[in-house]
Design a protein around this nucleic acid. Sequence first.
DNA 1: CTTACGATGTCCT
DNA 2: GGACATCGTAAGG
Length: 196
Amino acid sequence: MKMNHRPLPIEFYYQPTLELAQSLLGCLLIHETPEGIAAGYIVETEAYMGAGDRAAHSFGNRRTRRTEVMFAEPGRVYTFVMHRHTLVNVVSGAVEVPEAILIRALDPLEGLDLIGERRAGRKRGEWTNGPGKLTEALGITMEDYGKKFTERPLFISSGYSPEDISSGPRIGIENTGEARFRPWRFWVTGNHNVSK
DNA sequence: CTTACGATGTCCT
DNA sequence: GGACATCGTAAGG
């Protein structure tokens, strides 16, 4: 089970955001902490398309302390807090192009005991099947804001190539006009850890 | 300083 | 399917 993972190179992140959102499916998200290593395959993502996307925090190039990292080079870690949950994004798009990809669900692979502790009281199928759940499972917090996915301790490595990818409207953005209908959510077809 | 509000999760019916 | 917890961020006074 214990594999020798290493971060994907920065070049991986230099592809159009909608392609990167699909390329990330099947990749491993790994977090090494003092408590141990926890990792899972990415099985669901959502693209946020920057200045022209009403659902994006960076809509209209809105630039604040929170969105600042979206304007940096791709491959950075964008974390933000939603109610009491931390959500994690992969920054994409060139410098000054504030696009990002939300990681919505994982398939747990490594550190299952640790993940079970962090998600104590929940059934195994509820460990990482949502954007706020997976950050708790991997111990991702606002401390990780601005870090690079190309470096430890929080990084992305290659995993497997999904047989089939599905797409559809994004979740939880009912109040964003036409943007809500854009099919910018992607998931591994048939995977049962996709969020509900 | 004050206020409003979510890219959510959980519990209840 | 609906209520609501709970808090950092953003914006305005």
